[in-house]
């Protein structure tokens, strides 16, 4: 029998951002992935830059390449990404261990899902992230000195 030609309808990266109903957890998912990739990128650059020490190049000292306000802002964004990724990661670990998703229930319309059961955990973690981000901003702005 001849092979039937098909069209690949996989969404690819657009699938992270579109398709389906948009719930709060979907935004948390996207942000988790984006911050994860951002931290990874920072990590690679960090390794490269610190590696330059072997050649006697110090890019981060006063008056050198990285001693500019834009990189200070970038450093703060890395801190924000870290705070979100870490605290959302703790939520995900708890959820993946079956904490805060509830037990199986009889599905009666309108359906209740585990998403609403774990929503308070998400809110608490986001509040904690906001506090850490604000405290970090206080430090980055130099208000503690």
């Amino acid at each position: 029998m001849a092979e039937i030609k098909r069209h690949d309808n996989r969404l690819g990266l657009w699938g992270w951002l579109g398709g389906g109903r948009w719930g709060l957890e979907r935004y948390a998912y996207i942000l988790h992935r984006v911050t994860g990739l951002g931290i990874l990128l920072y990590f690679l650059i960090h390794i490269f830059v610190t590696n330059l020490r072997f050649r006697g190049i110090y890019l981060w000292v006063e008056g050198s390449f990285f001693d500019k306000p834009i990189f200070k802002v970038g450093e703060y964004l890395v801190f924000v990404a870290f705070a979100y990724h870490a605290l959302n990661g703790i939520r995900l670990v708890l959820v993946e261990l079956g904490v805060a998703v509830g037990k199986p229930i009889e599905p009666v319309y309108p359906y209740k899902t585990s998403l609403t059961v774990q929503r308070p955990l998400l809110i608490v973690m986001m509040l904690l992230a906001a506090i850490v981000v604000a405290a970090g901003g206080y430090e980055f702005l130099g208000l503690t000195r």
Binding site: E96, L97, S114
Partner: peptide, 26 residues
Amino acid sequence: CHYAGECSHVCPKGVDPAKAIQHLKR
């Protein structure tokens, strides 16, 4: 699975696959 929750949002029968997968992981 990283708990985006779309599966549970779109399920027409209230099966809540996101919940099932978390229990499976546990």
